[in-house]
Structures are given as structure tokens and as C-alpha cells.
């Protein structure tokens, strides 16, 4: 562990002098704020466009209800994973992280099924003749899926790092960061879901 820390990454004087928020956690929060701005931009664009007319109204397919359940479940499993790590129940931790990652993929898959359902029922998402209402839904949800996949990758990296290195790490920071991010994409989805459910 210690050789991983290079001299310059250490806030020497400050950490010893004050009890500040952890820099990496802080950066994650900032990054989350930044992602929020992106989706805020997109959903406000949606509202602005909707108010200008020529807007296609359609119902959200039921698959998005299922995916909502799946991603909420995954938030619970990752929370238990953090707990397991802190209790050093490594087998349990391994299992929970794996389940979480799988749930993330299942979520993305269900979203994709939802897209095809729309496409097969006359709601064209992109391409010639598509209406912005459907394109917006597709692009915004697609971007959200990208963020979920990003979370899955982060989980995988943490997972393999924790078990491949010879040095035992007792720091739970990586998994905590991943969990925070995971809860965030979960909440982000719930926001988007309610948004698309209410504002058609």
C-alpha cells in the first residue's frame, strides 16, 4: 500500500491540521453535481421542447417498472456489500458485489427491452420520422445506462484489485465511493422515471 502513495498525493499539512472531508469522496460529490447538471440540462430541454408543441404522447412500457425494481434492489445489495467489507466477511462481500454488478447489467438489459418494445409498437425512437418526444426518452435513458455501465466497471475494477494484490487492504474507501455512486445512479433513475411518467 505504502508504495502506492506518492509524495505529491498527500495533503500533508492540511490533513493533520484539520478534519476535512476526504478529497476523493469530495471529488465524487462534485462529479455527481456535474452529472446532475447534464441531466438537468436535458430534462429542461425536454420540457421546453414539449411546450412548443408537435409532441408525441405515449405511455411508458411496463419494463421500466421492472428495471426500477431491479436497480433499487441493487442499491440494497451494494449497501450490504459495504457492510460485509467493513465486517471483513470477504466471501459475503464477494457475493454481494457480484450480485450488484449483475443487477446493474440486468437493469441495462431491461431498459433495452423497453426501448425495443416502444419501437415495435409504433413509437420510433430515432431515425427518420421519429418524434423528439421519443428521441428524448431514448437519449436521456441511454445516457443513464452509460452511467450505470460505468458503475459496473468500477465495481469490477475494485473487485479484482481487492483480490489480486498481495497486500491486504483494510481501507473501505473504494467500495464506499462505488456505493455512493451506485446510489446516485439509482436515485437519478428514479428521478428520470417519475419525470417521464408524469410529464408526457
Amino acid at each position: 500500500m505504502s508504495q502506492n502513495i506518492s509524495i505529491n498525493s498527500i495533503p500533508t499539512a492540511s490533513l493533520s491540521s484539520r478534519n476535512k472531508i476526504h478529497p476523493q469522496k469530495f471529488m465524487l460529490w462534485m462529479g455527481i453535481g456535474s452529472i446532475c447538471m447534464m441531466f438537468a440540462g436535458l430534462t429542461s430541454a425536454y420540457i421546453v421542447k414539449r411546450n412548443q408543441g408537435n409532441w408525441l404522447e405515449f405511455d411508458i412500457p411496463v419494463y421500466f417498472w421492472y428495471s426500477t425494481l431491479v436497480i433499487m434492489l441493487s442499491s440494497i445489495t451494494i449497501q450490504f456489500a459495504v457492510k460485509a467489507f467493513k465486517e471483513r466477511a470477504m466471501q459475503k462481500y464477494k457475493a454481494l458485489v457480484t450480485i450488484t454488478a449483475i443487477l446493474g447489467i440486468v437493469f441495462s438489459y431491461l431498459q433495452w427491452i423497453g426501448f425495443s418494445f416502444l419501437n415495435n409498437h409504433g413509437i420510433q425512437l430515432i431515425g427518420r420520422g421519429s418524434n423528439p418526444a421519443a428521441s428524448f426518452l431514448f437519449v436521456i435513458m441511454l445516457l443513464h445506462i452509460v452511467h450505470v455501465i460505468g458503475g459496473v466497471m468500477a465495481l469490477l475494477i475494485i473487485f479484482f484489485k481487492a483480490f489480486s494484490s498481495k497486500i491486504k487492504t483494510y481501507s473501505s474507501i473504494s467500495i464506499e465511493l462505488a456505493a455512493t455512486y451506485w446510489h446516485f445512479v439509482d436515485l437519478l433513475w428514479i428521478y428520470l422515471f417519475i419525470f417521464f411518467y408524469l410529464i408526457k
Binding site: 447534464m38 440540462g41 430541454a45 430515432i126
Partner: peptide
């Protein structure tokens, strides 16, 4: 990030036939 979202919609209009 907001500029980025504007660009994403532009990319879809350019390459995927959407009409944002």
C-alpha cells in the same frame, strides 16, 4: 455538462436522424 448535453443532442441529429 449542459453544453455537453446540447452536443449530444446535436450528435444524434447529425448521425441518427433525430429531430431535436
Amino acid at each position: 455538462p449542459v453544453l455537453f448535453s446540447g452536443f449530444i443532442l446535436l450528435i444524434f441529429d447529425r448521425n441518427f436522424g433525430t429531430s431535436f
